[in-house]
Lab assay of single mutants.
Amino acid sequence: MSIQHFRVALIPFFAAFCLPVFAHPETLVKVKDAEDQLGARVGYIELDLNSGKILESFRPEERFPMMSTFKVLLCGAVLSRVDAGQEQLGRRIHYSQNDLVEYSPVTEKHLTDGMTVRELCSAAITMSDNTAANLLLTTIGGPKELTAFLHNMGDHVTRLDRWEPELNEAIPNDERDTTMPAAMATTLRKLLTGELLTLASRQQLIDWMEADKVAGPLLRSALPAGWFIADKSGAGERGSRGIIAALGPDGKPSRIVVIYTTGSQATMDERNRQIAEIGASLIKHW
């Protein structure tokens, strides 16, 4: 067993022997301040990774656009098919120029040779490549099948209805392509620590998230040296922004954090800054 596999296998073990965790309302004060600064709703939840206990939450059962955070769930569904012998990570998928959609920095470079399922998941999570996500959605049967996968996990809230990039439209009061912070946090925890996926697939999923290259201005910008984070960000229309993450000190994750916002007129930089400040408060009061 590799060191990384050992780390993920012992996530519940280490967490069980940690000192009790206590909620700190100071972080919620910052979440509410972010709402004021952005002029928009902000949803927040913080779960203990081992027990699933909610440590703090704000608007945990209000719907927010998922945006690209759905790509972690998508690759979880792909990995479940791999575990069941219905898919192979090494299978190569070929596609054409007509398949390319807006923001496809990886797939646009491989029109000639195609990409493997493993490479597509890596591109979808680490670079948020939209064509990679659409190609992977095709392998599982489309958005409705991802929703069905989530329902089978016990998540009857999260739903995907459309493809990239239309799913980022974020129309107010439109339930399409949305989740709730509580539902997303619980589902992410199941994917990373539950028995739904094999140990190898859980490790692969967290490795992809740990290698995320496009979430630097968010929670990662607030992390002290030595902290662990595996995350996936999302951005959408109407001032929408979000991030889902597993993080913790001492090089291992111990909490799940989900943050979503929508309806702001603020710039992307300002949305990023507010999420980073929430992260800084979380870490300060850990």
Results as ranks from 00 to 15, higher is better:
E26L: 11
E26C: 14
T27W: 13
L28P: 08
K30N: 15
V31A: 09
V31G: 05
V31F: 13
A34H: 09
D36H: 08
D36Y: 12
L38G: 01
L38H: 02
G39A: 08
G39E: 09
G39P: 10
G39Q: 09
R41T: 10
V42A: 08
V42I: 15
G43D: 11
Y44P: 02
I45S: 10
E46I: 08
D48L: 12
S51I: 04
G52I: 03
G52W: 04
G52P: 08
K53N: 10
I54M: 13
L55N: 05
L55H: 09
E56M: 09
E56Y: 04
E56W: 06
S57Y: 08
S57Q: 11
E61A: 01
E61P: 01
E61D: 04
E62G: 08
R63I: 02
F64I: 08
M66A: 04
M67Q: 01
M67A: 04
S68Y: 02
S68H: 14
T69L: 13
T69A: 09
F70M: 07
L73T: 02
L73G: 00
L74K: 01
C75S: 01
C75T: 01
A77C: 06
L79M: 02
L79Q: 03
L79G: 03
R81E: 02
V82Y: 08
V82C: 01
V82A: 03
D83A: 08
D83G: 03
A84L: 04
A84K: 04
G85E: 05
G85I: 02
E87M: 10
Q88N: 07
L89W: 02
G90H: 07
G90W: 11
R91Q: 04
R91L: 05
R92S: 09
R92M: 14
I93F: 01
I93T: 03
H94N: 11
H94C: 01
Y95W: 15
S96P: 04
S96V: 04
Q97A: 04
Q97L: 06
D99W: 09
D99C: 14
D99M: 07
V101H: 12
E102H: 02
S104C: 05
S104W: 04
P105D: 03
V106H: 03
V106N: 08
E108T: 06
K109N: 08
H110L: 01
L111Y: 07
L111S: 06
T112Y: 04
D113A: 09
T116N: 01
R118P: 05
R118N: 13
E119I: 04
C121N: 00
A123W: 08
A124C: 03
T126H: 13
T126Y: 07
M127Y: 08
S128V: 03
N130G: 12
T131D: 02
T131A: 10
A132I: 07
N134T: 03
L135S: 06
L136T: 04
L137P: 02
L137G: 03
T139G: 11
I140M: 10
G141A: 03
G142M: 04
E145A: 14
T147H: 01
A148S: 10
A148I: 00
A148M: 15
H151I: 09
N152A: 12
M153Q: 09
D155L: 11
D155G: 08
H156I: 13
V157A: 13
T158I: 02
R159W: 09
L160Q: 13
D161P: 03
R162Q: 00
E164S: 11
P165A: 05
E166T: 03
E166S: 04
E166N: 07
E169T: 13
P172T: 02
P172Q: 08
N173Q: 05
E175L: 06
D177S: 08
D177C: 04
T178A: 14
T178S: 10
T179P: 13
T179C: 12
M180F: 13
A182W: 09
A183Y: 02
A183F: 10
M184T: 12
M184W: 01
A185I: 14
A185E: 12
A185Q: 14
L188I: 15
L188G: 14
R189G: 14
R189T: 15
K190F: 14
K190M: 13
L191N: 13
L191R: 12
L192C: 10
T193L: 06
L196C: 06
L196D: 06
L196K: 02
L197I: 08
A200C: 07
S201W: 00
Q203E: 04
Q204G: 01
Q204I: 03
L205C: 08
W208F: 11
W208P: 05
E210M: 13
A211C: 14
K213R: 05
K213H: 07
K213Y: 14
V214Q: 15
V214N: 15
P217R: 04
L218P: 15
L218W: 15
L219A: 12
L219Q: 07
R220M: 07
S221K: 15
A222C: 09
A222R: 15
P224Q: 02
G226Q: 10
A230S: 09
D231P: 10
K232W: 10
K232P: 05
G234P: 05
A235D: 15
A235H: 13
E237V: 00
E237T: 00
R238H: 01
G242E: 13
A246R: 11
L247C: 08
P249S: 09
P249V: 12
P249F: 10
P249M: 03
P249H: 12
P253N: 15
P253C: 09
S254V: 06
R255A: 07
I256Y: 12
I256D: 12
I256G: 13
V258L: 05
V258R: 05
I259F: 11
I259D: 12
Y260E: 08
Y260Q: 12
T262Q: 09
G263D: 10
G263F: 04
G263S: 01
G263K: 04
S264V: 02
Q265L: 09
Q265F: 03
Q265R: 09
M268Q: 14
D269T: 11
D269G: 12
E270S: 12
E270M: 08
R271W: 15
N272H: 12
N272G: 13
N272M: 04
R273F: 15
Q274F: 09
A276W: 15
A276G: 14
E277I: 05
I278G: 11
G279W: 15
G279P: 13
G279S: 14
L282Q: 12
I283E: 08
I283T: 07
H285T: 02
H285V: 01
H285R: 02
W286G: 02
